[in-house]
Each structure stands twice: as C-alpha cells, then as structure tokens.
Simulated assay, not measured.
Amino acid sequence: MGITTSELKQLNCDMVYRMIYENNGITKQMIAKELRFSLPTISQNLGYLLEQDKIHCSSHRAATGGRPAQLYKFNYNSRITISVELLANMLNVAAVNLAGEIIAESSLDLVFTNDPLYFETFSSWVNHFIASLSCRPEQILGITIAIQGVVDADQEHISFGTLLSSSTFVRTDFAQHFQYPVSLIHDAEAAGIAESWHSAPDMNAIYLSLNANLGCAVIVNGQIMRSRHLSSGVMEHLTLYPNGIPCYCGKCGCAESYCSANTLIRKSGLSLPLFFQKVRDKNIKYLPIWQRYLQDLALMIDDVRMVIGGDVIIGGLLTPYLTDEDLDSIKDSVYSLTTFKNADFTISKGKYGKKATLIGTALTRITDYLKEERLVD
C-alpha cells in the first residue's frame, strides 16, 4: 500500500521540523538545499510550524551587509515538563524546556506524610507554580515526581521508601489532583539520566549522587540500566564494612553510612560550607574526616568497578566542594586497592550538580516527546 498525500505532507513537515531542530538557526534556502524540497513546500511547512509555535523566526544581517536573512529557530519553550524532587523534609519543583534547561524553579519546606492533607498541599503548591508560568495547558507535557525511594516495575507503587517512612503511597495519590499526566521515578535514576544525556552511545559509567543520602545509577551503552524491582540499582547499600555503622535500610556497614553527605555532617558536627572551609584551611581536626571519607568512597568505587568496569561520574550536593586534587586522590586510592592496575578509567564531576535530579526527571518526558515528534531516533 502506497503512502497517502496526507501522510506525505506530514512526513515533509516532520523533516523540516527535524532540520530546524538539528540546525538551530537555518534559512529557508538552506532547508530547501538540504532536503531538496521546493521553496513553496518549505514555506508552507514553515508557516504551519510558526502557527503551532514550534519554531521562531528572526532576522540576521551578514557582516558584508545586504538584505537580512530570515533564520528559523527551534522553540525550546514550546513544550515544558514539570519536575518535582520530593524529599523527606522539602520539595523542589522546576519547569524544564525541551533543551533540558530550567526556566523556573521553587522550593517548599514540607515534611512528607502519607495522608490526604499532604497530597492536597503538594498539589496545590505545584498547581500554583504551574499557574505562575503563564503557559497554555497544551504546552505542559506532564508532571514527573522524583522520590527518595525505589519505584516498582509497574510505575505505580513504591517498593522501598524507608527515607520517607512509607512505602504504601501510590502514584494516584498525586495524580488525582492534577489535569496533567503524572509519573514517579527514583531520584538517583533521574540524576543518572541527566548525566548520561548526550553521552557517547558506548559509554559505560557509574553515577554517584553525593547528596544528603547516597544515590547511585549504572549507565550501560549510554543508557540507564534498569532491573525489574530495584530500578537502576541500589549500590548505596553495598556492604563496605561488615557489622559497621547501622544504615536506615536495616543492614550495617552500607556505603550509605560512609559515603553520603550526611556522613560528613554527622562526623564533623558542622554544616557543609563550614566543614569545607575548615578542610581547605587544613584544620587538623577536620581534614582527617575528609581524607577518610575519600578513602571510603574509593573503596566503594573499587567494589562497584569489579562488576561495572566503566568510568565514574560524581554529582549531587558535594560536587561544588570537590577539587581536582580530591578527584585525583580518589583515583589514586582506587588504583592502590584494585588488583587490576591496567583497568584505566576516569573520575569526573557531573555537568548538572545538585540540579541533576530535577533535570533528569524532566528528561524522561522530553525524550519521549522528541521521539514522538521524530526529532530523535
């Protein structure tokens, strides 16, 4: 069966739209040359895309003068995703455009409780934030909530929510209060998605989120590895020291108890900014705490690399405090621990820092939209 006229017109429009997406700031003549379409066909499709607010048009005058060229640019704000980071004691919300850029954000101190009042307060605050954006409803792709817990394979239930003191709430507890689609994701997985975005197709890496609580994700061939029940993995609960410090998961000696930002706060009794001020001043009381932390982090990395022999990306709350010297120290310690001295790897700081969870949460919807629009494969 051949392609219909209507389908051909849609295909042509899709090709023009993708050309603008891949070459942001392109003239009508350049599109016609690349796609070998007639100028009237290009003009018709550009008119439709402008009408749909999917692209913008601006004038650009060349350095040599002459008539200004009309440049067509992708409208990254034509669609927006709302991402929410739900923590035990607070909420962070962001509006993220199709470029993965945060265009607005807000925070609210709110202790999580599994009761109707909490969900009503949550939804009221998020809906107020959405209203402040002055967006048309059709611009909003949906709301994705990153939680400090493991989301079950059905994407409806929480299989492990100890940090929130509950595993019995479900997606519909949130969704019933919104007119937009609502989904849940594990916060560490979301952060890993952000840091693997635009990565090389063959990239294998371990992502460590050094937030108040430790989070981890495994990146295989540029994609987040997911298991059936444990989301992207729970490497934070690897046992570093048998019979060690008790962990909130119920075990003792987990990496969480030694490699989270809370570990430094607990051991030093100081806030992170003050602690690192003391460390950089080489204070003899606090410098050993940091050095021991780096050694424990290296021990965890060596253990994980015995299974996933990739590079290491570090993100989260501690990212701004890490120096190149710290990263070199971690790598040197890993080499001193490992039997496989020839297994080279890199340790680097993530691109998005403590914003990785919010951005990665949004990307779950953004990438689906771009695929639906045939802008990415």
Rank of each mutant, 00 (worst) to 15 (best):
I330K: 14
I206Y: 14
I219C: 01
E373W: 11
S348Q: 15
H198N: 12
D296W: 09
G222H: 13
V16F: 14
G222T: 07
C13L: 15
E256R: 11
W125M: 06
G310V: 15
D152T: 08
G25Q: 03
P201T: 13
N342H: 00
S123F: 10
G192E: 06
D281F: 03
V151L: 14
L163D: 03
Q70V: 11
L272M: 12
S348E: 14
Q223H: 04
I245M: 00
V93D: 12
S166A: 00
F122K: 06
E156Q: 11
E156F: 00
L133M: 01
T367C: 06
V84C: 08
Y207A: 06
G315E: 09
W290G: 01
F74R: 06
N24I: 08
D14F: 13
R305N: 04
M15H: 11
P201D: 14
C259V: 08
I301A: 10
F169P: 03
I147A: 02
N45A: 13
E138C: 01
W197P: 14
G316L: 13
R136D: 02
M90S: 08
C259M: 09
S83P: 01
H198L: 15
S58T: 15
K54N: 12
V170P: 09
I301H: 11
M30P: 07
T239E: 07
E85D: 04
F74Y: 12
S199Q: 15
F160A: 13
I366K: 01
D368T: 09
K278V: 04
Q52K: 07
L287S: 00
L39Y: 10
I265M: 04
L327Q: 02
M306W: 10
H177F: 14
L133H: 03
A94S: 10
L274H: 14
L91G: 04
F129E: 09
K341N: 02
P40W: 02
F112H: 12
L46T: 11
N262L: 00
V218A: 03
S232W: 10
